[in-house]
Design a protein around this nucleic acid. Sequence first.
DNA 1: AACTTATGCATAAGAAAATTATGTATATAT
DNA 2: ATATATACATAATTTTCTTATGCATAAGTT
Lengths: 112, 112
Amino acid sequence: MGNSKLYKGSLNTIILKLLEESDKMYGYEITQKVKEITKGELNITEGALYPALHKLEAEGLLDVEMQKVDNRLRKYYKLTEKGTKETANRLTELEDYIRTMQTIINPKWSIS
Amino acid sequence: MGNSKLYKGSLNTIILKLLEESDKMYGYEITQKVKEITKGELNITEGALYPALHKLEAEGLLDVEMQKVDNRLRKYYKLTEKGTKETANRLTELEDYIRTMQTIINPKWSIS
DNA sequence: AACTTATGCATAAGAAAATTATGTATATAT
DNA sequence: ATATATACATAATTTTCTTATGCATAAGTT
């Protein structure tokens, strides 16, 4: 259990990105989707996911809608307008971070 | 101050990578080097750097050597043998993480 | 029928790794 | 004289995880 690869700070961006793609999702669905697209590399733990969702909701980035399926309760989350804007910012930030990391890992300053 | 871009967990890998490149460096030098190669994007704070260096030393990944230059004390750090091996691991891990993040950000599963 | 795994949510305790704020001290530039 | 740069360090706090636990229903297994 635990992946030791989920670098702190990126979970929120992952959630926002998935919601941008899929319109609305519920928590458990997010964990499964991440596991699927990363081929098991990333396993979002519930202890990290649910508090993160609650926080994003509290910040006004997500809206919630309850739905009962097969006698089990689901909480569907979707981006608010504010959330859609913020998603773009967070993605840009993550892309910048990745580019920065690649600059350090794969230094061009050693070529000259 | 503070950059909000230093995703938690990657600082140690950055330090190790720089030491792999430069043989030996002192703390302040590391902050300046990172600032330089990232064009000011990443600013390592002292409150993060020094405890990180102490921890890496305690783990046996770094060796220390004091040196007085211009009446100011410098603590030069260099990789131990163990540190060199661990650096390779951490870099692989970071590359995996970056690849995973790119899979999520830039999804191929939306093409089909 | 009993048991395990999957689905679905939640929270609390603890650890890890930052930020922010200090503190000390010397050197250099204005 | 004063501010900025160099050089280290630590304490308090915050953020963000992991790990552990709890509840509840559905589906599959022995």
